[in-house]
Amino acid sequence: MRRRLFAAAAAIHLVIAALFSTHVRIEDFIPAAIERPLQIYGGYTGAATRFNFFAPAVPTQPRVQFILALRDGSTRTVDLLTPNGEANQRLANMFGLYELVELRPVLLRTWAVFALTHHPEAQAVEVHVDLLDIPTIAQARNGKAATWVEAGRMTVRRDEIS
């Protein structure tokens, strides 16, 4: 009996995992009254995990730089890169949020505030975001190189956040 219950529970769990597994947003096809409990269940169990790694396309990557304006009038450019590859992967994942266009103004300001908080010597900061324009294989064979293309910038003064 215990094994049958286990098998039945496992089968239901695996069906839910399969429903949420691909790049297709299954939540767009099921009623909200069912979708939300399933999402919450998946949030606690991992059953709502999508396995569309690098799919259907490999996105580009934002580069975020902070140009600090110091008291003496000079500037200094910093970024958030660490010596640890795993930490950098996670930061890059967070910066990938910039691909959501509607969030860009909020993100620029949020990152500026973070930079000013961590660099008390700065009077102002200009957040500069570029996206990497990657040529196709055919374009690369013809000599085109990957280039950073500006995708946003914002300047925030310290007196604006205090």
Partner: peptide, 23 residues
Amino acid sequence: ISKSVGDQWWSGDAIWRALSLPR
């Protein structure tokens, strides 16, 4: 399945792009 619906995975560009990303 998620990869198979993307053109980059049939042209070779998916791995080319991944290898080109600084991250």
